[in-house]
Write a protein that binds this DNA or RNA. Structure first.
Lengths: 162, 162
DNA sequence: AAAGATTGAAGCCTCAATCTTC
DNA sequence: GAAGATTGAGGCTTCAATCTTT
């Protein structure tokens, strides 16, 4: 993936304006910028997490579990917190289980439900992984709270309970 | 994917602070917010583009081609402009070709290179698809230029030529 | 009927390997 | 050897369908 010397997003916006789509150029530029930043962040995060054998999704599950009293959370709850499809949770937990970081338990009160439970090996990973991730986060710079606030406007507009 | 009544991102940040990771909570919240906004935007865009039989990546290729003098661009150029891996371009163009929206030509001067060329059916799609996307873009609201500016700081920090 | 979870299919992305041509 | 493009593999996501339990 060769990187050009100029900014492809700014160039694209110039083209939209040039072709008479001035009314959409700002929105389009915003969308492509978000896509690009998402791509860059994920790339760096995956790089940092790779030595731990974790993806970002799996790291998030580990962290979520480590925050609970007993390191346990139902599959459905995980999906809600991470805002992903139940199938994604099943897949991620399956991999975490294969790595010996988590295991599944039946829910005591509701046989339909499955509980993901943190294992010692999983808990040992959370701290170091977070430390490494901090290097990425702290290098972000800028006024992040303000950025989040502006992004939250888009979330709210889409119906998110911000 | 059930949506909870509270904001999972704000709740997660509260948890990080609670567990003594105050130094990373702002960065983590920024990352998860970007991930969420990316997810929401892509979901809405895919929904809008679905009737046209297009994905966002394929729409972007069509638009890029429509901006050129003769509707033609080498595969490699497309990858640079869209900032995606060459394999992604190959895959997207293959689908566009299957839909009769684009076709492949050999490069006249360099036999190694392949050129993607817009077909009439493809050109007819660009305008209407863009009109529909405008509905999404215009509903974004807020100061988009300012948002892009703040996101560009992250891009620049990652080495993008902003 | 509704809820919780899982499976299989399909799309998009990346990477590594490969092939042809410069 | 380097560049352009393609292929196959693997990861993540979603959806639709399915199965069990409530």
């Amino acid at each position: 993936m060769v990187v050009p010397a100029f900014d492809p997003i700014a160039e694209a916006r110039r083209q939209w304006d040039l072709h008479g789509w001035t009314d959409s150029s700002a929105g389009m530029a915003a969308v492509t910028t978000i896509v690009r930043v998402h791509q860059l962040l994920m790339s760096r995060i995956d790089e940092v997490l790779e030595p731990f054998g974790l993806s970002f999704a799996r790291y998030e599950i580990l962290t979520l579990l480590s925050f609970t009293r007993n390191g346990r959370l139902p599959m459905g709850k995980l999906g809600q917190r991470l805002q992903v499809h139940p199938a994604s949770v099943t897949s991620a937990v399956k991999r975490l289980e294969a790595g010996g970081l988590v295991h599944r338990l039946p829910h005591p009160d509701d046989t339909r439900s499955t509980i993901a439970a943190l294992l010692p090996a999983g808990r040992r990973l959370v701290g170091p992984a977070t430390d490494r991730l901090n290097l990425v986060f702290s290098s972000l710079g800028g006024d992040l709270d303000n950025l989040v606030e502006r992004l939250n406007r888009i979330r709210a507009q889409a119906g998110d309970p911000v």
